[in-house]
């Protein structure tokens, strides 16, 4: 289910990896520009979001309100920057707008707002995204439209009771057009998920709620694509892809450090962004050079 012609999987992987790298660059640059934001959780979901927007999802940036489009909800709304980067790169709005993250007058708010082109649902207050997807999937069923509702949730969100309310609903109403990806980076704001909340048997819990559960490495693009394909084929129940990831992935000083949930040291980040810029510019086949800002 993709708008681009289906290239060989290997090429796709390489191309998607490049998109992911570019989204990482965009995101870090936005956060360093705004001097505020949540880089760690953006980095951990770069491949997931790339695979969704640049491969799996049926969307048309020229018609953001197209009724048959797949929906996307970033339930972990504090990771808005990487969503904005994906939307800009997809063509919903000019890449130049990314300079205005968190600034007054811009539609790139600190957390996603439904008024932003391409954003399907306001989010940022954790635990609500899957509920919204349940509503969207119900509407799709009533209207006999075959779109899907994708939701990316964070692991800390599993603390929120509303998530379990919505998980039970999606299963009870057999909403197989819902596909959740859990960005399981195992770090939340105050520490590891084990220190803060003890998630228990995550796989078993979703199974006990009647979900189709898949488990993958959330940075491995072929695994992500494969899981999304399996999810699409699953009938009669919703799917969750438990994607094991690394918070801050791709930024050496950020990887696995829960303190980088929020912006820790903007000087360090800014110099890293500059290095990344130079590196991308030197890229031999020029995939990235003319896309930089």
């Amino acid at each position: 289910m993709t708008t681009v012609s289906q290239p060989g999987i290997k090429d796709t992987t390489q191309e998607l990896a490049r998109w992911a790298r570019l989204l990482r660059y965009d995101t870090l640059r936005m956060i360093s520009n705004a001097a505020s934001g949540h880089p760690g959780g953006c980095m951990s979901m770069a491949e997931i979001l790339t695979c969704l927007y640049f491969h799996e999802m049926k969307v048309d940036p020229q018609q953001p309100d197209w009724l048959d489009r797949d929906r996307f909800i970033l339930s972990k709304g504090h990771c808005a920057p990487i969503l904005y980067a994906a939307l800009a790169r997809k063509g919903y709005f000019p890449v130049d707008e990314l300079r205005n993250l968190r600034k007054i007058g811009s539609f790139l708010h600190g957390h996603p707002d439904i008024s932003t082109p391409g954003v399907d649902m306001t989010s940022g207050c954790l635990g609500q995204g899957l509920s919204a997807a349940v509503g969207m999937a119900m509407a799709g069923r009533i209207d006999r439209r075959d779109y899907r509702a994708f939701v990316v949730i964070g692991d800390g969100e599993m603390n929120e009771g509303q998530l379990w309310e919505s998980a039970a609903s999606a299963s009870h109403f057999r909403l197989d057009r819902i596909i959740v990806v859990l960005d399981f980076n195992a770090l939340q704001f105050d520490g590891t998920v084990h220190e803060v909340s003890n998630p228990g048997d995550v796989r078993g819990r979703w199974k006990s709620l009647g979900w189709n559960v898949l488990e993958i490495d959330g940075h491995d693009i072929p695994q992500i694509l494969d899981a999304l394909r399996q999810a699409d084929e699953c009938r009669g129940r919703p799917t969750i892809v438990v994607a094991h990831t690394i918070k801050g992935k791709g930024v050496p000083f950020m990887e696995g450090d829960y303190l980088w949930h929020s912006l820790m040291d903007n000087d360090l980040l800014t110099s890293f962004v500059k290095e990344m810029h130079d590196e991308l510019q030197r890229d031999p086949d020029g995939f990235d050079a003319d896309r930089l800002w």
Binding site: M158, G161, L163, N198, G200
Partner: peptide, 12 residues
């Protein structure tokens, strides 16, 4: 949902 919030926390 709050029941499950409490369940998770009690186990922690």
């Amino acid at each position: 949902g709050q029941v499950w919030e409490a369940a998770m926390c009690a186990a922690k």
